[in-house]
């Protein structure tokens, strides 16, 4: 994975699905020209994007009719119960992996990798990335990439991390 993946990896799903805005797509494509790993991911995501589960014909009308009927009945009662989150059982040996997960959480809304990306922040982040090579990312700063951290973990470590996060 080359430098820059951290700013574009999450946008690959949107690019594969044709949802990315033109200017953002152009920047991702610039990165793709130099990154074989992201090109490979995009290839997988493009194939996956063709397997969208499409509702059978007539389902929308069926649901609309049922919804109108229910609304006319004026029935309105209990909302579905929302289960409480299960507490995590953290263990000391899992702390490094937990840190990776925590950093991953910091990612959303900060680096602009979701659809509502903040271009200005992204530019700042890219400038910082240019100053600090990939291996020198600050450990506790806001500009810490979630996906690259996770991408560098082995599958076994990812699964172990998940076990700790979802006991």
């Amino acid at each position: 994975m080359s430098t820059g993946c951290e700013f574009h990896a999450d946008a690959l799903a949107d690019l594969a699905a044709g949802r990315l805005e033109a200017d953002r797509a152009a920047r991702v494509r610039e990165h793709l020209a130099t990154c074989a790993a992201c090109r490979e991911d995009l290839e997988v995501l493009t194939i996956v994007s063709r397997a969208e589960a499409t509702p059978p014909e007539g389902l929308e009308d069926r649901i609309r009719a049922a919804a109108r009927e229910v609304a006319q009945e004026g029935q309105g009662r209990t909302a579905p119960a929302v289960r409480a989150r299960r507490p995590s059982r953290w263990r000391p040996w899992a702390l490094p992996l937990a840190a990776a997960a925590g950093l991953a959480t910091l990612w959303v809304g900060v680096l602009g990798r979701d659809a509502d990306s903040d271009d200005r922040f992204e530019a700042d982040a890219l400038a910082l990335a240019a100053e600090a090579p990939f291996g020198a990312w600050p450990a506790a700063g806001p500009v810490v990439a979630g996906d690259p951290v996770l991408s560098e973990l082995s599958t076994e470590d990812l699964e172990r991390l998940l076990e700790e996060m979802e006991p």
């Binding site: 989150r85 959480t105 979630g146 996060m165």
Partner: peptide, 13 residues
């Protein structure tokens, strides 16, 4: 019903 981090790990896996 998981954390954002778990969802991200699941996506990667």
């Amino acid at each position: 019903d998981t954390s954002e981090g778990s969802a991200r790990v699941n996506y990667h896996l």
